[in-house]
Design a protein around this nucleic acid. Structure first.
Lengths: 141, 141
DNA sequence: GATCAAATCGGAATAATTACTATTCAAAAA
DNA sequence: TTTTTGAATAGTAATTATTCCGATTTGATC
């Protein structure tokens, strides 16, 4: 998934291509980490002074529905990142300080002998939380 | 972990034993599933008409700190359940409808060849979401 | 029973998110 | 290019979950 692919999907599905949508996509492409709604507002404030939260939330929701972004919930707020699992399914190691991520190339779903007969699985989550090397060094310094 | 153990821990740590705390613990012991703050209020409303959310949140937080409850975040709200991982570490299969849980007796942390050198792990989550047999039957019927 | 700190109540404050209406604008048609 | 039209947006109000705070109550200790 890259910005052009995302734009293609968006147009394909009959959604309008606006400056704000382009810049939001570019932001997520540039930052390979989880961002909250307020982070998006903060990042686009220099360009669009009065950008509405409504716009941000609506677009985050749209992009997630279209598979362009993936979402998780951490510390009381929803966070989004560019969907990097389109080529192969994987999970994330997430830094609690900066939101930076690494990949886990092992999906436990395969190994988990699901011991709940009759249970219909619709989703799963495997995430590791902690502090990345960079944040630990900053902290130490 | 059971109610008596929980009460023992609470007293041990110098916290007062109140009717509301006893009933909250009993509620979590009876329901082996994730409950949100409002679920607790709902359940204890017949006994204590005007129970404050402050009381509920404060106690949920206390119990979690003491290791009596474990918490997760789902669909915009924090949810809590009796800590059932005191004997052996495990994860949960969670019904999105009723919150009922089953155990996953396989922790992916052991197998996950963590590919983030320098990363300090502080927590991890492995959860499977879907619909349990009971809720699917209710839905179908 | 008296004392005191902790627990609780009730309501206000905060923060994230969603909803609503008037206005603006991208894209297709003329 | 201009017109048209419905989707997108701004600005603000409403909603929901959670936390905070001063006044009051209560469990545990003496």
């Amino acid at each position: 998934m890259n910005v052009n692919e995302a734009i293609a999907i968006m147009k394909e599905e009959g959604h309008k291509y606006t400056d704000k949508r382009r810049d939001m996509l570019q932001l997520f492409a540039d930052e390979s980490r989880y961002l909250a709604a307020k982070d998006v507002l903060e990042a686009l404030k220099p360009t669009y002074g009065g950008m509405s939260f409504d716009t941000i939330y609506r677009n985050l929701s749209l992009f997630t529905d279209l598979g362009i972004l993936e979402a998780t919930e951490l510390d009381g707020e929803k966070r989004f990142r560019f969907n990097c699992a389109t080529t192969h399914h994987h999970h994330h190691i997430i830094c609690l300080e900066c939101g930076r991520t690494s990949h886990i190339h092992h999906c436990p779903m395969e190994a988990a002998a699901v011991s709940a007969p009759g249970f219909e699985v619709v989703d799963h989550k495997f995430e590791i939380y902690g502090y990345c090397r960079e944040c630990r060094q900053t902290e130490a310094g």
